[in-house]
Simulated assay, not measured.
Amino acid sequence: MRRTTDTTDSTAARAAAPADRPEGSGGAGSPGRLRALVEAEYGGIGGGYVNTATLGLPPARTAAALRGALDAWAAGRPDVAAYEAAVAASRAAYARITGVAVERVALAGTVAGSVGLIAAQLPEGADVVVAADDFSSLVHPFAGRPGLSLRIVPLAEVASAVRPDTALVAVSAAQSLDGRVADLPAIRAAATEHGARVLIDGTQSVGWLPLAPDMYDYLVCHAYKWLLSPHGACFLTVREGLEATLSPAFAGWYAADDPWESCYGPIADLAPGARQFDARPAYLSFVGAAASLSLIEEVGVPAVNAHDLALAARLRAGLTALGRTPVPGDSAIVAVPGMPATAPARLQQAGVRFAARAGNLRFAFHLHNTEADVDLVLNALG
């Protein structure tokens, strides 16, 4: 039991309330109920924001939770007990969303920090396979670790690149650059055949793309995109039995079995399971995460998936009709290479918020988006 001295009721504590929802529950049900729920959370947002792959938009409940916590802090009433409740609620909700036991989820601060924790313990000369042009936070910790054999291969060849001496495959489930979704079943099968472990970066996928827990040994996800949370709410999932593959040298006081009794000197007892790798949480980030994750659970990942993919498919079809060739695939992220130099300015003039990545125009659809957003993009480009 974590000991705190402030038990004041607060918005942060109320945001933590969904933690007792049974695993596997949630889902908005009918399309009408989904629309009503999303309207209640995003009704005040103007159209044109199609850039969740850069930054997710907080729902109303998240903005309210953060304002309440910030106001209380500024008034000299920071509620540490409520912060801790929000941290616990966030961890539990993320475990349910990803389909793992809560004991498997560690708190993190960044993707690169979690990947570095894994890279640090690989043996000298270990063979690591990553995808070309994958996000730097996933790739560079291996490149920056001396003594590793890092092989960078095209995304479509990741599974076939796994060989008997491969120690680890690290890949984003959905690519930041262009939205392509990795063939995770093939990667998992190749890794199992050769005794390699699999690390998945779910930052561009968790929240809209269902991921089977047996596909990965480690899953890292920063929640500020598709999980609609503030920067600083990040999670690392560690498969049971793999705790020994990570180093306790990175543990701080929050990784203790009882953090509030382990603030000074060496930690006598690390927490069991993945919690022993906890980074000290940024409290306000997790106040927001508890609220945002409750919405993802309430809607349900299958419903989010259907909503996001339908809008992305509508845009791909419209772009094809305009004579453009978007990157193919079934992804909530739509990337279009080779657009005219005038296209960004036309989109901006129409009020479209999008991203440009390595020669692609990138559009990403999520809960707050409607068909009107798709049509706004197509009209600006057509």
Rank of each mutant, 00 (worst) to 15 (best):
R2A: 09
T4E: 02
T5K: 04
A15Y: 01
D20K: 14
G24M: 03
G26M: 02
G27D: 02
S30W: 04
R35H: 10
E39K: 10
I45S: 07
Y49M: 02
V50L: 00
R61N: 08
A64K: 05
A69N: 08
L70R: 15
D71S: 15
A74L: 13
P78N: 02
E84W: 06
E84P: 09
V87K: 08
Y94W: 05
R96G: 14
E103W: 06
L107C: 10
G113W: 09
S114P: 01
V115P: 12
G116W: 03
A120W: 11
E124C: 10
E124A: 14
A126I: 04
L138S: 09
V139C: 09
F142G: 10
G144H: 13
G147D: 09
L150Q: 05
L150A: 06
R151Q: 12
L155M: 14
S160Y: 04
V162H: 02
R163I: 06
T166S: 12
T166N: 11
A167P: 04
S172M: 07
A174W: 01
S176F: 11
S176N: 10
R180D: 00
D183R: 00
P185D: 08
I200P: 13
D201Q: 04
G202K: 08
G207W: 00
W208D: 02
D214W: 06
Y216S: 12
D217W: 01
C234I: 02
E240W: 04
E243G: 15
D257Y: 15
G265C: 09
P266C: 07
A268G: 12
P272C: 07
P272F: 05
G273W: 03
A274D: 10
P281N: 07
V287H: 10
A291Q: 05
V304Q: 12
A306Y: 08
L311I: 10
A313H: 13
G318K: 03
G323T: 14
R324N: 07
P328L: 12
S331L: 04
A332S: 15
A332L: 08
V334P: 10
V336Q: 14
P337D: 08
A345Q: 14
L347N: 05
A350P: 06
A350L: 08
V352F: 06
V352L: 14
R353A: 07
R357F: 04
R362D: 06
T370G: 01
A372T: 05
V374Y: 05
L376E: 00
L376W: 00
A380N: 07
L381R: 08
G382S: 13
G382P: 05
